[in-house]
Design a protein around this nucleic acid. Structure first.
Lengths: 329, 329
DNA sequence: ATTTGACATGGAAGGCGTTTCATAGATTAC
DNA sequence: GTAATCTATGAAACGCCTTCCATGTCAAAT
């Protein structure tokens, strides 16, 4: 495949520049990469030649040669979810400073797509991979760590990856304690994926909370696959049908919390009077609707994830969450 | 740079496979790419060799050789805005089918970053570029069309690009007519960027609407830089201070419309009684809050944009918008 | 005077697939 | 029976940059 400009002219390559400037390709490469040991005269000759020939480096050749691409892969299940949007925003913000670009892989929680991303790492099409929500098994992921840094946004301690994560166990415990202090005993929760690492942590916290107090809890109060605004409705429909409904709800996404709250307002269910709601994320919508929530610094988390990616070393960062009291408890 | 596996073993390349299978590299390449004219015996020998050597194609070499990367660039100002999130989702959905990956460029509306993306096209790091919201001038963008397909999400007729766009002039006119039919004369609007292509179209529609009726309009009723939920508040604060406030608002983003509506509900301003609101996009939040809005099939638009990108030919698709009547007018 | 090290420069060896072209035997066509 | 067309295969050119290594100059150090 001949590399041409639009009009059919052939694009100049480093060899042409070398010839034009009367130096070796090595010297041109040195100028190109800002390496030392080039006299001013030659450097200028090279720059002049690049100017006249309208030279542009063939970036794919650079990639091949270097074995790196300055591309970072980012796996998110759905880019439309504000949660992931914010993380990606943080990654992108930081990446631009280091002249990295992002390759976005929307997984839809399909292992195959995540595998695609891992494969890109193996093939050196990307220099590192950030998995915002994992679908593949740990074993699978760990198989690929030999090819480049992999960063996951979940507790990765004990695994061959870097990670940045929140202490969901503790946050959940705190939320439960807080609700209890407000007199709530019948507490339900809304999670996203039933058996994601984060969900498991939260369920454990919940179980332990009740176990420690030697109290039973109601399995009907647990809702799964709660991820977006619209989910608020069916959750409330189900609650309305209960003889003994929960008096408080821990909702692991502000989007869902907002949906629930909107439904309540519309249907005359008093919040927090009849139902208390605690959200997670502290998204704009939570502020707007005065939802009590746990702040998760998602943009900052994205930033840090990127920094871990380029840093290369293994690290595990834990993020502490703060509760923001507003008006839904 | 030597291409190695994690343990230090060298990664097999096409030459190794050729030797192993007792054929030429050409034949291996043919097998790799499903080209005809390879006997079954040799094909199998090659496959066998690839198996035993655990061969993976060096994708960067393929890129260099082919001059293509199966990467599509996508420029969005901010990935966190649901509007762009949905478009990207559509692009990603379609891209996966054709084995394309997305390179996300967050421009923050900075020309320099958009230029970065254009440069990637020139350098063949991406095969095509979709600009979801343009910052650079038409001249700048058109300079780069020689290097690959560029698709913009705005009316690009008369320019050297492909485009997919909505008839904002007509939609605005229809919205105005609709509001007028409901008795509204004092109509304001909330736009995003003051002088974006889409905003210009909308302002023209507004001006023409009033001009045609030989009526004056109030410049105080025009709000700019309205993009997110939070903007609803200051817009309403300003309206509350007016002696002669508008009775209806055309809001070019459901997010902003939702922010406005939330403020109204909280402050006892009746909607649509005191203020009618028409949104744009038909995002989930509009459904949830029963906002009358124009449906913009953003995911579908993303899909089509991708298809235009790989198709290569120049095309201009116009999307017709439908109004969804709910409860805010 | 001689050694050492910093500065400069270029040749050539990678990094690795794809594709064109040349060649040759096997069919098919007329 | 002979020309035209397929089928199969490989050598070599091509895409292009980075970097290791060898060589050489010149000034500072001993």
């Amino acid at each position: 495949m001949h590399n041409t400009l639009g009009e059919g002219r052939t694009m100049a390559n480093i060899k042409d520049i070398a010839k034009l400037a009367g130096v070796s390709v090595t010297t041109v490469s040195r100028v190109l990469n800002g390496h030392p040991y080039v006299t001013k005269a030659k450097r200028e000759a090279v720059l002049q030649a690049m100017e006249t020939a309208d030279y542009e480096r063939n970036i794919n050749a650079v990639h091949l040669s270097r074995g790196r691409t300055n591309l970072i892969g980012v796996v998110v299940p759905y880019i439309t979810r504000p949660y992931f949007g914010m993380v990606v925003e943080g990654i992108a913000d930081e990446a631009i400073k280091d002249n990295y670009k992002l390759v976005l892989i929307q997984s839809n929680y399909e292992a195959e797509r995540e595998l695609d991303a891992l494969m890109m790492l193996k093939l050196k099409q990307i220099d590192a991979l950030i998995i915002c929500s994992r679908t593949c098994s740990w074993e699978t992921v760990e198989e690929y760590t030999q090819y480049g840094p992999i960063i996951v946004l979940e507790d990765g301690r004990g695994h061959q990856v870097s990670s940045i994560f929140m202490d969901h166990y503790q946050s959940f415990t705190r939320a439960l304690t807080y609700l209890r202090s407000k007199g709530h005993h019948k507490i339900g929760y809304c999670l996203a994926r039933q058996s994601s690492p984060n969900s498991n942590l939260r369920e454990a916290a919940y179980r332990d909370f009740y176990m420690n107090r030697h109290e039973a809890y109601n399995h009907d109060y647990m809702f799964y696959d709660c991820v977006q605004l619209e989910d608020g409705e069916w959750i409330m429909q189900r609650i309305l049908k209960m003889d003994d409904p929960p008096t408080a709800l821990l909702v692991t996404s502000d989007q869902v919390a907002a949906g629930i709250l909107a439904f309540c307002r519309e249907n005359g269910i008093e919040v927090p009077g009849q139902l208390a709601i605690v959200g997670f994320d502290n998204q704009p919508i939570a502020r707007m609707m005065h939802i009590t929530t746990f702040e998760i610094p998602l943009v900052e988390i994205g930033r840090r994830a990127f920094l871990q990616a380029v840093d290369g070393g293994r690290a595990h960062e834990e993020i502490h969450l703060n509760m923001i009291e507003r008006q839904t408890v």
